[in-house]
Design a protein around this nucleic acid. Sequence first.
DNA 1: ATTACTACGCGCCGAGTAA
DNA 2: TTTACTCGGCGCGTAGTAA
Lengths: 215, 215
Amino acid sequence: MIESLLKELALHGAINRYILVTTSQIGASLGISQQSASRWISKTAEMGLIRKESVGRNIKVKITREGLNILKYEFFRYLILFGSPAIITLKGIVISGLGEGKYYVMKGGYRTQIHQKLFFDPYPGTLNVKLYPEYIEKFGEILEHEPVILDGFSEGDRNYGRVFSYFATLNGTPGALIVPEMTQYRDTVEIISEYSLREKHRLKDGTNVEIKVYL
Amino acid sequence: MIESLLKELALHGAINRYILVTTSQIGASLGISQQSASRWISKTAEMGLIRKESVGRNIKVKITREGLNILKYEFFRYLILFGSPAIITLKGIVISGLGEGKYYVMKGGYRTQIHQKLFFDPYPGTLNVKLYPEYIEKFGEILEHEPVILDGFSEGDRNYGRVFSYFATLNGTPGALIVPEMTQYRDTVEIISEYSLREKHRLKDGTNVEIKVYL
DNA sequence: ATTACTACGCGCCGAGTAA
DNA sequence: TTTACTCGGCGCGTAGTAA
């Protein structure tokens, strides 16, 4: 639990600086109640792993050196397991899809699998990014790596094909790159995320974005 | 808990193959009882994250694709936090120290800090490795990175200086590289670990070893 | 030596709520 | 809106033990 809390706070940016958080927000992220989040934050602060201060009715927290050490240690253990990963960076511009993304992502068959295999609840919609030509080859390289596979399924008389996915960030926000097995487009990629990437990063058609794919 | 269990089993080599384990062993690694370990292993198996089989009175386990996905996801989240780390590889041969390592590591002042900051109970002794000349420069590079600092302390009328440490593996076994702040030797490095590295890897003076330092 | 059952008690979680 | 208290219930961990 403490490790998860530290990780969550770190992902919110609490390394080296205070961040404003609410206990319900953290609770929701960790899948526990507001009350439990409050209690764990206090407990972790008492252990000296984070520093907590009240700001009016709200709180701000920051991870201490001791807390950071725990995260570094756990990261070290993962590195022993997986080695240093390949990270491929893609760049391109935001374009509008056909609005199909939304339709697909929310299809029960995919949505459940995204939850089970990618571990987030997808925002209903995909972000389409048209790659700059020099990145198209790199996109090909990604496809040579082992994906997380979302199985195809049938609904009514319609068949939905397999989708290959890879953990990725868009401008630093975590999500996944998804590639339908059957698709003719190889210069455009689709990203899904827990958040509305368009809103979070104020993206419009034509905005430059950076995608990092972790393999 | 489940994440910790999966990580522990993975570090024991349960990715892609069955490993023989005992519930007490896993319990000890996780800091819980044999009974609890037994229950968690069964529960995790029921969830489909590991596969468990009985071998006589013992058990063997292996992580499933689903379990591996969880580990990959958590690793992905750490990568977002820390980025791809620098890993520096050093090679050299085992040599005998002056037997001082044992004396130092077990000194209360250091031992407690190793537990708190490096998260393992050190085997009483250090492994000394004399680097091949071509790796001495790389050792210098390591020292430019931020270490985990073990503070100096006084005991009786003797002063013990600060020690810089870095998470590292020796032939794949996790531990730490330690560098006393005040030392004249720059071609010899010391490694500590939870285990007796000499026994675990059957090392004798003169044996080649590989150290990977995670920065 | 194992695994894993039952019993039991502590502690954690979340509901309700005050401030 | 917040944070964080009290309280009741249940889940988890450990002791004891059978196989």
